[in-house]
């Protein structure tokens, strides 16, 4: 019974998070202005990171944790660099 509940919830979460990545990618492609694209990229990074965590829970494996952590780190640094670039026109002054 508990396995059934967990499988259903984790499957739903995987679908929802994958959909979230798709929606963020849609905004990334539609954009309009550069800041929209950077914002969408950041959201896509967070959603992908959560997708990795949920997948780890579903497979009962601890190996995804490092991947999720690297994803969070790289996502932050890239969003910050892009935002800084939009603000100043260069990343490091």
């Amino acid at each position: 019974m508990s396995a059934l509940i967990l499988t259903a919830a984790l499957s739903y979460a995987q679908i929802a998070l994958a959909l979230a990545v798709c929606l963020a990618t849609a905004r990334l492609l539609r954009g309009k202005r550069a800041q929209d694209r950077v914002l969408a990229l950041d959201a896509a990074y967070v959603a992908t990171m959560l997708l990795l965590l949920v997948t780890a829970m579903r497979m009962g494996s601890g190996l995804f944790f490092e991947a999720a952590m690297i994803m969070a780190g790289i996502g932050f640094v890239s969003s910050l660099a892009l935002a800084k670039f939009l603000l100043r026109g260069e990343v490091i002054e």
Binding site: A9, A13, A16, L17, L19, A20, A24, V46, L50
Partner: peptide, 12 residues
């Protein structure tokens, strides 16, 4: 898990 993923989906 459902709450977390739903909130992320609504955000997207």
């Amino acid at each position: 898990v459902v709450i977390g993923s739903t909130l992320t989906l609504i955000g997207a």
